[in-house]
Nucleic acid binder design. Structure first.
Length: 800
RNA sequence: GCGGGUAUGGCGGAAUUGGUAGACGCGCUAGACUUAGGAUCUAGUGGAGCAAUCCAUGGGGGUUCAAGUCCCUUUACCCGCACCA
């Protein structure tokens, strides 16, 4: 047993005092930038899941330093957001004080775990020195026409009284509080992220993101290629534009459906005989929450527009027009051409309202089911006889394009980014509204627009930001004309601060600029970025969008911010369930590291399972890792004063160097630890080991368990401080065994094993195999059909 | 519905990518040392069988000398998105 508390404190102090992990901008070493998602410093302290990814990337960082890189491995705080605000309201303190306390707790916990962060670059997104530049960059979006304010039907959380982006609505409920979400019209600041949809897809080619992250991003952007088709409204000059990916089915269009909010309804008001019904339905729809609209509307509802018809441009027949809430204003054009024979939703609607169903693709029985698959085109004029949708689509689109009825379009699921929040605890949007000049940006020299130090900042009842209750804050002079004007009282979303933080780490104390150009050029891309799968879509898209825009206007030198992106699995409770307060299955990392030591916790979190997969916590497993470290401690008794490697251990040591080196690169931390356990088992079997044997071992283990290894190194006088030493290399010629155990199979089943020299030829291997008694028994009196030889592995004798 | 993922002993998980299934750890069993053991050490540990052997990677087919790994099919669970036209 060793005293972990004493040893760990000692080395943590040493690293602090010697600034062991502070990165320097520049120098002759190659650079390596490792980034781990910075935490939201919640009041409950570190979660047991945090040390998993932090240790993994810390291990990489420590290894890279030993490999001679200039490593940037920073840490900071993403501290704007609702929880801090709610906590502060509840406890009647200013959020900035709450945040300060929480950061202190978090930082202390991280230090106790011995992570090699460069604390000299620490900052919080809530620091005015930082959010000044967040505001400044917002103004760049504005200058380039990418930030605009628009009336927007937004998701509105009734209980938080705050607008939410699509990304923050989960299953029709508020992501934060689980409360009811309804639609509400509001003027919101928006960023034109949609314009970057293609760039965000293409940019992925320049990255090494793990596949599931790439796929998640592509799906989220939701690119879909199709066409916009014009349908005349009979007897008017108006026309309806629809988006479709299946223009080949246009002969089957027997009606049209508009979103209830569609603007043409207002235009055609006078022609619609039952306009009052339309209005009733609109009111009905607006009242429904997103959840109701999706979940409860399994059976379709709608209203037919009496008195008006659309014209199917290929059949020239008059078709009825409906409104229904199954068509969304937010996707495509808010209007669809309905093909009931081949679309589930249109089919249900047509059945309910007795609309004709015309089959245009052969297959299935459309009396009972819409047919969705591929097949021969029928009832389709020029398309008849074509048997695959690809050519049918191509033919129809070219035909309609010629006559100006249709044009090719691409649609995206991705929406513009709603950038306004009606909250106090966020970066104020640096815009001023003047009655004569309109929206005017705050001049750079007046940045940052600071949040006020006030006692009360409860949300207003009408859903405005608390800042809207503070005339002394929002009243100001128009920067353009000097007349009295009003500051924007909305603040930025939580995601803003995390959309450029990796840039600031490169040059965190720059007073004059968001990041110095030299620092940007020096550090370039983040080489390795790790974070949770829950951020694979939104955070990562916002960050990439932000960065790409900064590239387009020449402020950063790279198109993409991150090279490698990996994602860790969750640490589940001992019961295999996701950790939650209500289940009471949480594990406190403080208690664990106090009782078992930071090295034990770190080793266990690396060992517990596949890094990318969710894994249940096991206190017994943790104890096993402590036993491993105790055994390492005890092996000191066997050390003899000799620097060369033991003959008996040499091959194993070289193999382990290779294994651990490769495993860390491939995030196979669990097998890296297990191979070290195996090696220690071998050391244990020896009567004594050399200083050299031990030095290699603790060097390999050092990135994972940095304290105990430094201590042993010092106690035994094995060499210089490990974290400043070289990573061991292996000798290819030393990892070859002189002999190997050859497996002999008969008809694919193992029937014998024999020790064979590694350099045995195929013929020699065969003769070894045929000498084994058990093999002789099997092949006696049988015909040998063939013998398969796998060099240095096995022989399979096929008999009849 | 669409997209992604997972399935291997009592448990967490290995398996060089088609070549000995179960590394390593936990747990368990027996023994040693002990006043004691929830410390440590030794041995054993997928199932059946005295054994030779047989069976076994969610289920069912297939390819192959050889399949956890490849192909087809099917089931269960997890995650993300969702009347996306």
């Amino acid at each position: 047993m060793y005293n972990h508390n004493e040893i760990e404190k000692k080395w943590q102090n040493y690293w602090d005092e010697n600034k062991s992990f502070e990165a320097i901008n520049g120098g002759s070493k190659p650079k390596y930038y490792i980034l781990i998602e910075f935490p939201y410093p919640s009041g409950t302290g570190l979660h047991i899941g945090h040390p998993r990814s932090y240790t993994a990337l810390d291990t990489l960082a420590r290894k890279r330093r030993m490999q001679g890189y200039n490593v940037l491995f920073p840490m900071g705080w993403d501290a704007f957001g609702l929880p801090a605000e709610n906590y502060a309201i509840k406890n009647k303190i200013h959020p900035k004080d709450a945040v300060k306390e929480n950061i202190a707790v978090f930082k202390n916990q991280l230090k106790n775990l011995g992570f090699s962060f460069d604390w000299s670059r620490e900052f919080s997104t809530t620091d005015p020195d930082y959010y000044k530049w967040t505001q400044w960059q917002f103004l760049k979006f504005y200058e380039h026409g990418l930030a605009y304010k628009d009336k927007k039907t937004i998701n509105w959380c009734l209980s938080c009284k705050v607008g939410l982006s699509n990304e923050e609505v989960e299953q029709g409920k508020c992501e934060r509080c689980g409360g009811e979400v309804v639609k509400k019209e509001k003027e919101q600041w928006m960023l034109r992220m949609r314009r970057y949809a293609d760039k965000l897809i293409e940019g992925l080619e320049d990255t090494n993101f793990i596949d599931r992250v790439k796929t998640a991003q592509i799906n989220w952007i939701g690119k879909s290629e199709g066409a916009e088709v014009n349908f005349e409204v009979d007897g008017t000059d108006e026309r309806l534009v629809v988006f479709t990916t299946r223009i080949d089915t246009i002969y089957g269009v027997t009606f049209m459906v508009l979103a209830p909010e569609h603007p043409i309804l207002e235009t055609l008001k006078d022609k619609i005989n039952n306009y009052n019904e339309v209005v009733d339905y609109q009111i009905e729809t607006a009242k429904k929450s997103e959840f109701e609209r999706v979940e409860l509307a399994k059976s379709k509802t709608g209203v037919r527009l009496e008195g008006i018809y659309a014209i199917n441009p290929v059949t020239n027949t008059r078709i009825p027009i409906y409104i229904s809430d199954y068509v969304m204003m937010g996707y495509g054009t808010g209007a669809i051409m309905a093909v009931p024979a081949h679309d589930r939703r249109d089919y249900d609607f047509a059945k309910k309202y007795n609309i004709p169903i015309i089959e245009v693709i052969k297959g299935g029985d459309i009396e009972s089911e819409p047919y969705i698959g591929d097949g021969m085109m029928i009832n389709s004029g020029i398309l008849n006889g074509i048997d695959n949708k690809k050519s049918a689509i191509e033919k129809m689109i070219s035909y309609l394009e010629e006559s100006g009825i249709a044009k090719r379009t691409v649609n995206y699921r991705l929406q513009d980014w709603v950038f306004s929040r009606q909250r106090f605890w966020g970066e104020p949007i640096p815009m001023i509204h003047c009655d004569s000049c309109g929206w005017v940006p705050v001049p750079d020299s007046d940045l940052p627009v600071l949040l006020p130090d006030v006692a009360s900042y409860e949300p207003t009842d009408n859903g405005e930001s608390p800042l809207a209750n503070m005339p002394e804050w929002y009243t100001t002079a128009c920067p353009k004309c000097g007349k009295q004007a009003r500051r924007e009282t909305d603040t930025m979303p939580n995601w803003a601060g995390s959309s450029w933080y990796w840039l600031r780490y490169m040059d965190p104390n720059n007073k004059d600029y968001f990041v110095g150009r030299d620092a940007l050029e020096y550090w370039g891309k983040v080489d390795w970025y790790n974070g949770g799968m829950e951020h694979a879509t939104r955070h990562l898209l916002y960050a990439r969008f932000w960065h790409r825009f900064m590239y387009d206007i020449g402020l950063v030198p790279t198109k993409e911010p991150f090279s490698i992106r990996t994602a860790h699995g969750m640490v589940l409770g001992e019961d295999g369930e996701k950790i939650s307060k209500s289940k009471g299955n949480g594990i406190d990392p403080n208690i664990i590291s106090d009782e078992y030591g930071a090295d034990t916790l770190r080793t266990y979190e690396m060992f517990m399972g596949d890094y990318e997969a969710d894994t249940a916590w096991s206190t017994n497993g943790l104890k096993g890792c402590r036993r491993f470290l105790d055994r390492l401690w005890r092996i000191q008794d066997k050390v003899i004063n000799e620097m060369s490697l033991s003959k008996e251990l040499e091959v194993s040591i070289h193999k382990t160097i290779k294994k651990v080196s490769d495993d860390i690169e491939n995030m196979k931390y669990n097998t890296a630890v297990s191979s070290l356990m195996t090696l220690l088992n071998e050391y244990d079997k020896q009567d004594n080991i050399t200083k050299g044997d031990l030095r290699v071992f603790i060097t390999l283990l050092n990135p994972i368990a940095p304290h105990i290894t430094e201590e042993i190194n010092e106690l035994q006088g094995l060499g210089p401080i490990l974290c400043e030493s070289k990573w061991p290399t292996y000798d290819e010629s030393k990892i070859i065994d002189e002999t190997f155990e050859m497996v002999v199979q008969v008809n694919g089943k193992v029937r014998g094993k024999v020790e064979v020299p590694s350099d045995a030829t195929d013929e020699e291997m065969k003769s070894y195999a045929l000498e084994i008694d058990n093999i002789k028994r099997y092949i006696e009196g049988r015909d040998i059909v063939k013998i398969i030889v796998v060099p240095k592995k096995l022989i399979n004798i096929v008999i009849k």
